[in-house]
Amino acid sequence: MASLSPSLKKNVLRHESLLLLVLLLEFAFLCLYARNFGTPDNLSNVVRHSAEIGLLALAMMPVILTGGIDLSVGSLMGLCAVLFGVLTHDYHLATLPAAAVTLAAGLFAGGFNAFLITALRLPPLIVTLGTYSLFRGLAEAITQGTKTYRAFDPAFLSLGETRWFGVPLQAWILTAAAASFYLLVHRSTFGRSFRAIGFSPEGARYAGLSVQSRTALPYLLTGLVAALAALLFTARLRQARADAGTGYELCAITAVVLGGTSIFGGVGTLPGTLAGIAAIAVLTNGIGRVPAVFKAGIGGELASLLTGALLLVALAGPELARVLSTRSAKISPSPKTL
């Protein structure tokens, strides 16, 4: 924080403290009204179920910080899950080498995005829209649209349930990822470069920063993390299918934007992203446990609906506040001759 300018600090802190407040209110509400929400068992469920989206959001944050976007992460999850299934079933690879190959493939796919975006200088939105379609299409083509891989090594499947010191494995992974991304974004020269590129790619280039390689890095990381998320997802659901991670890119972007990172690049903090992830995860789990919602059986839809609405509010809120405050300021002061 020491490196933020006062005005930036004020804005960022305002957004993030507001989000924290919303999160606390949400939490308190659900603890009071939702059935079995606050139990330790359920809370560890919240973490287990949100680990994949959380990881994707953490990786998405630096991408958005550079002013880019990666719409392909959900599809890449599907492709990696299918690839892992193919490797273990059709090629009879052991779990570890198969996982290693899957991670390498994720990195490669991220590198493909990065290559098109940095070396050919194509707009990230359209490139990743293309690979969004391409990756999912490859997954569907491999599985003929229907095949599901189920027979995995029990040791691998138990990862989805593993706890260390009573805390689910996913929480440990998420914490490690969050810490690494925090260091990357806020404590290293890489993060500084992401920010500079997000504000002005040309300005960064004229400052002697290696814009191409620094822009490529976040996309490589989203690829790697998408593969990791695919493995966790497969272990948790005990199956690998082409539709793994459908729509996850939206949730990840929502968490990042909700967490105060500007979609235009340059502005944003990783703790904010974490708060954004938590807000969505808690909502998704908790809303279905509110008795009325539970009875109607609409928890999933309502959670997504509220997430979409929350994103709109997060986007429009500061702007509305600004418009309203300037309007009231316009009305009050000195008499005018206009």
Binding site: S3, L4, L8, T189, A196, F199, G203, Y206, G208, G266
Partner: peptide, 28 residues
């Protein structure tokens, strides 16, 4: 457009071309 990245603090602007020298090991 090229000389100064306007939204960034001036110290960060000044250090931008000396990252390797000022931040050995890539830590700020």
């Amino acid at each position: 457009r090229h000389g100064v990245i306007l939204p960034m603090p001036i110290a960060e602007n000044m250090s931008m071309a000396v990252h390797p020298k000022l931040f050995p090991g890539k830590w700020l």
